[in-house]
């Protein structure tokens, strides 16, 4: 019962903070709302029985990343134009949410098959693709290092 109450509280905090990111005029408050969203995600991990992952989520995303974002946009003034189209946000959310909920609940993964077997199959499939993913990550890293070197070289040529 306590878990259900905590889950409902986390859902309310997470969803409202997500909405606040898009309707808030001040970027500072939007960044704080993002930190609250990450906090609720850490709470969900704690509810799932993964306290170590929740702790890392708090350290990396809430403590590190959100702090950087908040400090960066702290000096920004209010956004003067209407940056988010609220009716479009609602419409796209409803369409995408319906499609994804249908895919999760009524498609290949129905409520009866949301079991350990499905999760095990997903874990195995991730394992097969991991080599390709690792190669892509390595290539992106190499491209990043190469682009930094190219930029430094071009700066030297200009100077």
């Amino acid at each position: 019962m306590l878990n259900l109450i905590l889950f409902i509280v986390l859902v309310i905090v997470g969803v409202f903070s997500d909405i606040a990111i898009f309707i808030e005029k001040e970027l500072f408050k939007a960044a704080i709302a993002l930190a609250l969203s990450f906090l609720s995600a850490a709470g969900f991990m704690f509810l799932l029985g993964l306290p170590l992952i929740a702790l890392f989520q708090l350290l990396i995303l809430v403590g590190g990343l959100s702090t950087y974002l908040i400090v960066t946009v702290a000096s920004e003034r209010k956004v003067l134009f209407r940056h988010t189209n609220a009716p479009m946000l609602l419409a796209v959310f409803l369409i995408l949410g319906t499609i994804m909920v249908y895919a999760v609940s009524l498609g290949t993964i129905n409520s009866a098959s949301l079991s350990a077997n499905v999760a095990q199959e997903i874990a195995v499939s991730i394992s097969k693709e991991w080599a390709i993913m690792g190669a892509i990550v390595f290539m992106m890293f190499a491209v990043g290092i190469g682009s930094i070197l190219l930029v430094k070289r071009s700066i030297k040529l200009v100077v």
Partner: peptide, 12 residues
């Protein structure tokens, strides 16, 4: 879904 909708509907 909220993130995708926000990325589509926002201009900032």
């Amino acid at each position: 879904a909220l993130g995708l909708a926000g990325a589509v509907a926002s201009r900032h």
